[in-house]
Computed example of a mutant assay.
Amino acid sequence: MKKITFPLILLVLTACGENKEVQPAEEATAVAVAENVTDSIQVDAITSATSKPNQVSFNGTMVIPPQRMATVSLTMGGVIKSTSLLPGEPVRQGSVLATLENPDFITLQQTYLDSHAQTEFLEAEYLRQQALSAEQAASQKKLQQSKADYLSMKSRVEAAAAQLKLLEVEPELLLKEGIQPFLQIKAPISGYVADVKMNVGKYMNVGDALCEIVDKSRTLLRLTTYEKDLADMKVGNPVQFRVNGMGKTVFKATLISIGQKVDEDTRSVEVYARVDTADNQFRPGMYVTARIMKEQASAEQ
């Protein structure tokens, strides 16, 4: 009986030892699974909102809305007499960008001043003929002729004044200061000078672009998304983005427009977001990577 007892005891002890070795392995597996689950949940450092690990990022560029970008072009050709512009230089609306030399500009001013003077004379003559006609001291023919001359000269003055205003010359100022030898090219908006294409002595034709002015106060993001992502997008959704070359800094924007046409080749859709976090380093054309937050993420913030 003693010979049988010892092997049974050894067998039981061996089995217990094997169970003790398996238990730590199962615990390690459970810990690893828990760690994987924890790693799969990403927490936004800015908003503390959680997101799925496969959340889509969208690529795009910074752009300027059309009303914030101006191309300075000419409505009258001529030779650039002077300019001091440099690319990147800030300018204010109405400031002089360059001066233009053209004999036709002097002729236009002379036409306006002569017509204005003639109009005053013809108006006085027309009023005199009206008074004489009322007293039956003048013929109707002279009255009609006087009226026609006055109205004709008046329309000529108005046409010359309209042309001067197209050139950003105020007719009233011309009456006070007289003929100006050079046409001043003024900035239509405030912003930064870009793409300067003029220099002193260069002849510029009508419609030629002298430069561009960019107002960065209303920068937008133009992002490329896809039709499968449209269901999760709504105007007003917050957007978080990073700019190429500016490290890991996260900036904020707001979705303001979703394209209504899908590209047939790439199945992509363009969406636009208004940049809410301004930075002097922003430039049109910079590449960005953005994440459009869903409504659930917005509620958690």
Results as ranks from 00 to 15, higher is better:
Glu270Asp: 12
Gln240Cys: 06
Val157Phe: 11
Glu120Ser: 12
Glu125Trp: 08
Arg291Asn: 13
Glu170His: 15
Gly88Lys: 10
Glu123Gln: 14
Gln144Glu: 15
Gln109Phe: 14
Gln296Pro: 04
Ala273Phe: 07
Ala117Asp: 15
Ala273Ser: 10
Tyr287Met: 12
Lys248Val: 12
Tyr112Gly: 05
Ala25Ile: 15
Thr47Trp: 15
Ile256Val: 15
Ile41Phe: 10
Ala273Val: 09
Val235Phe: 03
Glu227Arg: 08
Ser73Asp: 04
Gln240Val: 11
Arg156Cys: 03
Asn280Met: 07
Leu10Cys: 07
Val288Asn: 04
Ser115Val: 09
Asn59Trp: 09
Lys228Val: 11
Arg222Trp: 08
Ala134Asp: 12
Glu168Thr: 06
Leu8Phe: 00
Arg267Phe: 13
Pro65Asn: 01
Arg218Asn: 05
Ala273Asp: 06
Ala137Ser: 09
Thr29Ile: 12
Ala134Asn: 10
Leu74Pro: 02
Pro181His: 08
Lys165Phe: 01
Ile80His: 09
Leu173Ser: 10
Val56Gly: 06
Ser133His: 15
Lys2Arg: 06
Asp276Leu: 13
Asp279Asn: 08
Ala138His: 02
Gln118Lys: 03
Phe58Gln: 06
Thr225Asp: 13
Asp229Ile: 02
Leu173Glu: 07
Val235His: 00
Gln136Ile: 00
Val22Met: 13
Tyr226Asp: 11
Asp263Ala: 00
Ala28Pro: 04
Leu127Cys: 07
Pro188Val: 09
Glu177Trp: 06
Glu270Tyr: 07
Arg92Gln: 05
Leu127Thr: 12
Ala253Ile: 00
Lys294Val: 15
Ser190Arg: 00
